[in-house]
């Protein structure tokens, strides 16, 4: 739906990674396969591959983050890149420096890739459009719009547990309206061809025209979980209670919290996911978060391999051991 796909180069190869929307299934599968080949790196004695040696990657975070930033940092280091972490708090912008000024200053240091998190939707697109040629932009979360690397690590986790996507019913529970994670997950799941995507939340947390996203909307948790193979719980921002979107944590947990009882409605082998950080007792019961169905901690460790795959593919189009042409073939018609 994006008018010009600035994520791909003229050959249809990945140049930036800004949103899942508009990327072809073949490309997503390639990324998951590449991630699979990196998953072993962490078990080696020397946890490094030399793919991005001599490259400089900047983690440019305009919003606080621990997990996403550290997994990006680890991923970059395992690819042998030099990493610079820059946390731009309100201070720089308060001094009047614009986003573009910040970008230009960093570009002057000859960086090869920016991993960007920003509170405004579309910030990563904006930076990609104005970045110098040859500089890759990876979106690490922009406003409510997209968090595509998180979605890819979730797909990786789902594939590892469930195999083929086409038979799966996936239920996403929680604040869809404000969630960039949910938007990217929904695009990834529909591109990968799952059977059904459901979202469960009260009306105040469902965006307008949800059918534009291709999901089925439920307002009752057990109905939404019925026979689901994958359950994704979203973090509930406590601010929502102030903005008249919800009356109380208590009522939310009563109606939409994932408890053992609610989980009974899902398929017996359903997995439970959460992008973290968890609000125990608000959106999920501790016994489930720590229980056998939970794959929450695996999501975190998969994050490193998936981000290694995305960074290496965006910076050099051919994966290890594969000629570049194999990648571009399937992509050309999508360019």
């Amino acid at each position: 739906m994006i008018k010009e796909n600035i994520q791909l180069d003229a050959q249809g190869r990945l140049r930036h990674f800004l949103t899942i929307e508009g990327l072809k299934r073949e490309l997503l599968v390639e990324l998951l396969d590449t991630a699979e080949s990196f998953a072993g790196v962490a078990e080696q004695a020397v946890k490094k591959v030399p793919l991005l040696r001599g490259k400089t990657i900047v983690n440019l975070f305009f919003e606080p983050s621990t997990r996403t930033r550290t997994t990006f940092e680890l991923a970059a280091k395992r690819l042998s890149a030099d990493v610079l972490n820059i946390n731009v708090t309100a201070s720089a912008t308060r001094k009047g420096e614009t986003l573009l000024d910040t970008l230009r200053n960093l570009e002057a240091m000859h960086c090869d890739m920016f991993v960007v998190r920003h509170p405004d939707s579309g910030a990563a697109h904006f930076i990609a459009r104005h970045a110098a040629p040859g500089v890759s932009i990876i979106n690490a979360g922009d406003g409510r719009h997209a968090h595509p690397t998180q979605a890819m690590l979730d797909m990786f986790t789902i594939r590892r547990h469930k195999g083929a996507f086409h038979k799966l019913t996936v239920t996403i529970v929680g604040d869809i309206l404000h969630s960039r994670v949910a938007r990217s997950q929904i695009h990834a799941l529909s591109t990968l061809g799952v059977k059904e995507i459901r979202v469960v939340a009260p009306r105040t947390l469902i965006p307008a025209c949800p059918e534009a996203l291709g999901v089925h909307v439920y307002h009752e948790l057990r109905a939404g979980l019925r026979d689901a193979d994958v359950i994704i719980m979203l973090r509930l921002q406590k601010e929502r209670m102030r903005g008249a979107a919800l009356p109380s944590e208590h009522e939310y947990y009563q109606l939409f919290g994932l408890t053992e009882e609610a989980l009974e409605a899902a398929a017996p082998d359903a997995i439970v996911m959460h992008p973290g950080p968890i609000n125990r007792g608000v959106e999920i019961d501790s016994s489930i978060a720590d229980g056998p169905r939970s794959v929450i901690l695996q999501q975190v460790s998969h994050g490193i391999a998936v981000r290694m795959a995305i960074m290496s593919r965006a910076m050099q189009p051919s994966p290890p051991g594969q000629p570049a042409t194999a990648v571009s073939e399937g992509m050309e018609e999508g360019a």
């Binding site: 929307e21 939707s121 922009d142 409510r144 719009h145 965006p207 059918e211 534009a212």
Partner: peptide
């Protein structure tokens, strides 16, 4: 505008 496009782009909508 609060609608299909604001939903896709994650932009705060005006109904």
């Amino acid at each position: 505008h609060e609608g299909a496009v604001s939903t896709r782009l994650g932009l705060p909508g005006i109904p």
